[in-house]
């Protein structure tokens, strides 16, 4: 009987470990097991990404439709080339859509917002979004404000 409780407690410990990992996956890191929806790749070039990182959200009207997967500097024109994975179900992004880098709240994280255009042709895997608006950089804003003040 003593041996039985020993083995039982070891079994319980192992189960508790697996359960703990599940909790960490679902409740803590928000991993959803159904989320392996097929995606397609879209690129966008920005003058300044201002704190955007990979794994940042990509949204339309605030609704997440994908994630940023990598950010690279293009050595030809010194702009940032951002690669995004967009959910396959969102197949209605026209080629003249525009992407801009937004901030959630005053000091919150950066994310990409997409505004759908009016063109008839849609973005396909590997296409590039031409119209972009870079992140707001506080120093630039202050600089513009000051120069407009001095011109007066």
């Amino acid at each position: 009987m003593k041996v039985r409780t020993l083995e039982l407690s070891v079994g319980v410990l192992m189960l508790a470990g697996i359960a703990a990992l599940l909790v960490l996956a679902v409740k803590v890191s928000g991993l959803t097991f159904a989320a392996s929806e097929p995606t397609y790749k879209v690129y966008a070039r920005f003058d300044n990404i201002g704190g955007l990182t990979s794994r940042s959200k990509v949204t339309i009207a605030g609704v997440p439709i994908g994630r940023v997967t990598s950010i690279q500097l293009d050595p030809k024109d010194f702009r940032a080339k951002v690669e995004m994975q967009i959910n396959q179900s969102v197949n209605y992004l026209s080629t003249d859509s525009s992407a801009m880098i937004l901030t959630s709240g005053l000091l919150g994280e950066k994310y990409i917002g997409i505004q759908v255009g009016a063109d008839d042709t849609m973005l396909k895997d590997g296409d590039i979004i031409e119209y972009t608006q870079s992140a707001l950089v506080l120093e630039d804003l202050i600089g513009k404000f000051l120069s407009s003040q001095t011109k007066k």
Binding site: L21, L24, V28, S29, G30, L31, E109
Partner: peptide, 19 residues
């Protein structure tokens, strides 16, 4: 509290690396 946590904790980068 939980939404913030789920947004920033990545299972592979944080939990698995810790393991």
């Amino acid at each position: 509290f939980w939404a913030n946590m789920q947004n920033s904790v990545d299972f592979a980068d944080d939990v698995i690396n810790g393991m």
